[in-house]
Amino acid sequence: MSCYLGKMGNFTMSTPSLDTLIELGAIADAQGLQGQIKVRPHSTDPVALLSSKEIWLSLIPRRDAGVSASHEQASLRAYKVKQAKMHSGTVVMALDGVTDRDQALALKGARILVGREVFPKAQADSFYWVDLIGCQAKNLQDEILGEVIDMTEHGAHGVIAIGDASTKVIKQLVPFVKEVVQNVDLPNKVIILDWQSDW
């Protein structure tokens, strides 16, 4: 069982709602002289980032940094991905319209977002972390443990942060391993865990 968690400004693609976009990484630096960018992925297995043909860039910090959603929405820019490959723990991408090092450096710090609908289909017993956020966590005794409010990487496996979605207060951290996770029902947004409420 595992988790994954056109020309610049010119190619036509309607701007999606921020609520439908998933942040997959951030541009760390330029790579080489041909306009390639070096991306620091948020996942150790950035399959969605590597397979995306179109991405959105935002030079605005995360919304929780005090930037209004409307301002961030207006800052989004679409790019076609010409090539993406892994290189020493980062993803190196070539974007249509970014042709030299100066253009690539101008994008440093930008967040990379893609639509959830473009993610490749997850393999059996694998899940995208973004799909687990918001699921209700229950144990084998049918006790509600809380809601999945975050997922993080912890060495060899993921960790589910369970708590109160409205306050974002984490009550429990549960390893996302097959010995604990008994069932994931994404259509009904329920995860069954072999876990006690007082652990």
Rank of each mutant, 00 (worst) to 15 (best):
93 M>L: 10
86 M>C: 08
147 E>I: 15
4 Y>H: 13
145 L>G: 01
159 V>N: 06
143 E>G: 03
120 P>N: 11
80 K>G: 15
161 A>F: 07
71 H>I: 10
1 M>F: 05
170 I>Q: 03
66 G>R: 12
102 D>L: 15
192 I>R: 12
116 R>H: 02
34 Q>K: 15
94 A>W: 08
28 A>Y: 04
88 S>V: 10
184 V>E: 11
187 P>N: 11
153 E>T: 05
69 A>C: 00
142 D>S: 13
138 K>R: 14
20 T>S: 14
49 L>P: 00
29 D>E: 12
131 D>N: 15
133 I>Y: 06
160 I>Y: 10
198 D>P: 00
192 I>S: 11
156 A>G: 15
187 P>E: 07
120 P>Y: 06
174 V>H: 01
120 P>T: 09
48 A>M: 09
141 Q>G: 03
2 S>D: 09
126 S>C: 15
142 D>L: 09
91 V>N: 08
91 V>F: 09
60 I>V: 15
99 T>G: 08
185 D>K: 08
85 K>R: 15
97 G>P: 04
165 A>P: 08
178 K>W: 04
98 V>S: 03
134 G>Q: 06
24 L>K: 00
38 K>W: 04
42 H>I: 04
120 P>K: 07
71 H>K: 15
101 R>C: 07
117 E>T: 09
141 Q>S: 13
8 M>P: 03
179 E>S: 08
176 F>A: 14
99 T>A: 05
184 V>Q: 08
36 Q>D: 05
72 E>I: 12
137 A>N: 11
174 V>T: 03
110 A>E: 01
68 S>E: 14
93 M>W: 02
83 Q>C: 08
6 G>H: 11
50 L>Q: 11
36 Q>E: 10
197 S>T: 06
41 P>Q: 06
79 Y>R: 04
128 Y>H: 06
20 T>Q: 09
123 Q>N: 08
150 D>A: 15
100 D>R: 07
177 V>N: 03
10 N>K: 12
40 R>N: 13
197 S>F: 01
16 P>C: 04
78 A>D: 00
116 R>V: 02
98 V>R: 01
166 S>Y: 04
173 L>F: 13
36 Q>T: 02
82 K>D: 07
149 I>G: 01
154 H>G: 12
112 I>T: 02
115 G>H: 11
90 T>E: 10
54 E>V: 15
95 L>H: 02
169 V>Q: 14
161 A>G: 10
162 I>M: 11
168 K>Q: 14
51 S>H: 10
55 I>F: 05
193 L>D: 03
24 L>D: 00
140 L>M: 14
90 T>C: 09
196 Q>L: 12
130 V>W: 08
63 R>F: 09
189 K>M: 11
44 T>S: 08
120 P>L: 13
40 R>A: 12
35 G>R: 03
27 I>H: 00
165 A>Y: 02
193 L>Q: 04
99 T>V: 08
55 I>T: 04
7 K>R: 14
140 L>F: 01
59 L>F: 05
166 S>F: 02
171 K>M: 06
